[in-house]
Computed example of a mutant assay.
Amino acid sequence: MPRALTDEQRDFVDAIGEFCRRECGTKQQRDALTDHGRHPHSRELYARMAELGWLGVSIPQDYGGAGRGMAELCLFLEETAYGRAPISGFATTIISAAAYEKFGSEPQKREVLSGVVRGRVEAISMSEPGAGSDVGALRCRAERRPGGWVVNGQKTWCSNAHIADHVLLVARTSGEGTKHEGLTQFMVPTGAEGLRISGIDTMGGREVNDLYFTDCFLPDDAVVGTVGAGWSQLVSGLNLERMILAALMLGTARRAFDDTVSYITQREQFGRPVGTFQALRHRIADMATELECARLLVDDVARTIDANPGVLFPREASMAKLKCTELAKHVALEGMQMMGGYGYATDYGMESLLRSTVVSTVYGGTSEIQRDIIGKSYGL
């Protein structure tokens, strides 16, 4: 089905596609950019995108960005994911940037938002060993001291902290009230004294980290927004986070689907291409239909968000995140099955697509949490 894009959006999508084919279109190119997949973020490629002005697609013009909306941001995320561009740092960067844009002081905005446009990476830290889906259970504390705050505790699963300029830290500043009260956001330079960043090895390469805070002093101007309002500030950004992950996985699912179709139209068994057998042909038809549904959902929710600035759409954003992440995992698994042994071979790339999709149903709110949010929106 033809996609309803403006001429400007179509040119944007075409330019991204051409760039990805030229700069990271082969496994050899991607291996060179990522040290054979060990580092899923290429500073080199990221810098080239910054020069083209793409990283500032949703950053306000006052800070050097293009000032575009959710629709253009989702297109950028989807197309770079489809093109397999190794820029894993962009997602956490744009999530963090949105928080600074909404709640940060002017100096914080100038430093972070203009840095995003220039190709700097940002990170956000919420999870702890005992607080994942239940953010209100976090225990990392920031205590008042003359002229600032002292942070002690551990955070975990912090994506891209090792390549970021700052970590947007969510810490407990008060034990009074409900568990969601007394949380505050802080802008923490990754080189701050008292902060140790330790990588966690995963099947997706070096991307996530443990953060250890030991008497880490932060000045008063490190507070982002209002002291004690960290939870409400987080909630206001959930639309963005879920849509970012939905768009990324939509692009990844499209890539897995196209790679599968390419393989089964060429691979022959029993005297004909394996894709002509009904068992595979019907599975391809089902996945193609589901991909079209997911694309329409993402496009529609993105346009709705752009048309209603300041309005939260938790049900719709959760639906998009749930649909696209689960679909991407399903398509990659089906791709491996249809490709047989070659699906496991690193030369063909399906195994790396599977690795990137499996975790997508966990981070940014698990599929179970998304279903719970959707269900509650119906009064259940």
Rank of each mutant, 00 (worst) to 15 (best):
G177A: 08
E79Q: 14
F103R: 04
E176A: 14
R118V: 08
E111A: 15
R139W: 04
C140H: 00
E106A: 06
S174Y: 10
R144F: 02
E143W: 01
L138V: 08
E78A: 14
A97S: 15
G130T: 11
V117Y: 08
V151S: 00
V121F: 02
S96Q: 10
R84N: 05
A131Q: 02
A131K: 00
I163R: 07
D134L: 11
V116D: 03
T156G: 09
T92M: 05
L169P: 05
L169C: 04
V117K: 00
I94H: 02
K109S: 10
D62V: 11
A97V: 08
G147L: 07
N152P: 12
V151P: 00
G65D: 10
A85F: 07
A66Y: 00
L168V: 06
K179S: 10
G89Y: 05
T156E: 10
G175P: 06
V135Q: 15
S105V: 04
E176Q: 14
A91P: 01
A91T: 14
V170E: 01
E128N: 01
M70R: 13
R144W: 02
E101S: 15
G69K: 03
T173D: 03
G64E: 06
P146D: 10
L77T: 07
Q108L: 01
S88P: 00
A131P: 04
